[in-house]
């Protein structure tokens, strides 16, 4: 017995991107997921190019056309004009940039903080875990809008401060999610195998544990995008978010509220924009969960 039996187990002629193809196949199976992806694509398109493509770019910069105030929807102004005679469509298109970017910033910062806290808590365990998770619980007990208001009030209004303010109340969800996932992944056999090899803790965390908890984080990010946009709009609505004349959906809605119901179109357009953005991100999130995290399906 000197010769090693070469395995003749059949070669599997699969391309390397097989997993991706399967995921796309599953994603395409669901019409709602596809719809979500399409809506999100449109929203992202306006985020990137809304300001450039707007029919009345001067209105975005704050120009006023009082002669044409409160025009109902028409061909020249598909969503009418507001109390300053600005084209509502242009404002909503430009507002996409601020709202979606703010929402994205909130989710991104929240994820970073939450993942860091959750991963350390779950991986280190013991008193570190206790301490970090009690801090997380503490943050969760404070209503997020009120915390954000307090922080925004302390830091002063403005885009960056608003994003920071919301992020600081946003991370606990991620911390809890990541901690749970890390705790589960820590018990995987391949992690024990890595420990048996002699890999150091940081290698185990970054190479073996975190790559395997990315899927649920991405799903949560996608589901959260909608709520983040809503929260940003909420702060804008109560007047501590982005200040006019910078167009933002919440602010636009807030300004138009005094002119309801006579000039309904001023509220209609930003409201619908928000509705579609939130709806799209939620559908996309559900679809992503189905392909990335099949265990959680229905």
């Amino acid at each position: 017995m000197s010769e090693i039996a070469q395995t003749s187990e059949a070669e599997i002629p699969r391309p390397a991107d097989d997993r991706l193809r399967r995921a796309l196949f599953r994603f395409r199976q669901s019409k709602l997921s596809m719809l979500g992806a399409a809506v999100v694509a449109i929203v992202l398109f306006f985020t990137a190019f809304g300001t450039v493509l707007a029919p009345y770019p001067e209105h975005i910069a704050g120009a006023v056309d009082t002669a044409n105030r409160f025009q109902p929807p028409s061909l020249t102004h598909p969503f009418g004009t507001n109390e300053l005679g600005q084209d509502v469509l242009s404002l909503v298109m430009a507002g996409a940039t601020v709202s979606v970017l703010a929402g994205f910033g909130v989710v991104l910062i929240g994820t970073l903080i939450g993942t860091l806290v959750g991963a350390v808590a779950g991986f280190v365990g013991g008193w570190t875990d206790e301490g970090l998770m009690r801090l997380t619980d503490l943050t969760l007990t404070i209503p997020s809008l009120i915390l954000a208001m307090a922080i925004a009030a302390a830091l002063g209004p403005g885009f960056t401060n608003m994003v920071i303010a919301i992020s600081l109340s946003w991370w606990p969800g991620y911390a809890r999610l990541v901690r749970g996932e890390v705790l589960a992944a820590r018990e995987e056999v391949y992690v024990t195998a890595a420990r048996a090899i002699g890999a150091n803790p940081s290698r185990i965390l970054f190479r073996h544990i975190l790559p395997n908890v990315v899927s649920p984080i991405i799903v949560k990010m996608s589901l959260d995008m909608g709520f983040a946009i809503l929260t940003v709009a909420g702060l804008g609505f109560i007047g501590i978010g982005v200040r006019p004349p910078t167009p933002e959906w919440g602010t636009l809605l807030s300004l138009s509220r005094s002119y309801m119901p006579d000039y309904w179109w001023t509220a209609m357009a930003p409201g619908m924009a928000m509705f579609f953005a939130v709806f799209g991100f939620n559908l996309l999130g559900d679809g992503l969960r189905d392909i990335l995290d099949p265990k959680a399906r229905r």
């Binding site: 056999v189 391949y190 048996a196 073996h208």
Partner: peptide, 12 residues
């Protein structure tokens, strides 16, 4: 070194 029981779970 060690080889584990479940080849499905022991590879990352």
């Amino acid at each position: 070194q060690i080889v584990f029981q479940d080849p499905y779970a022991s590879l990352n």
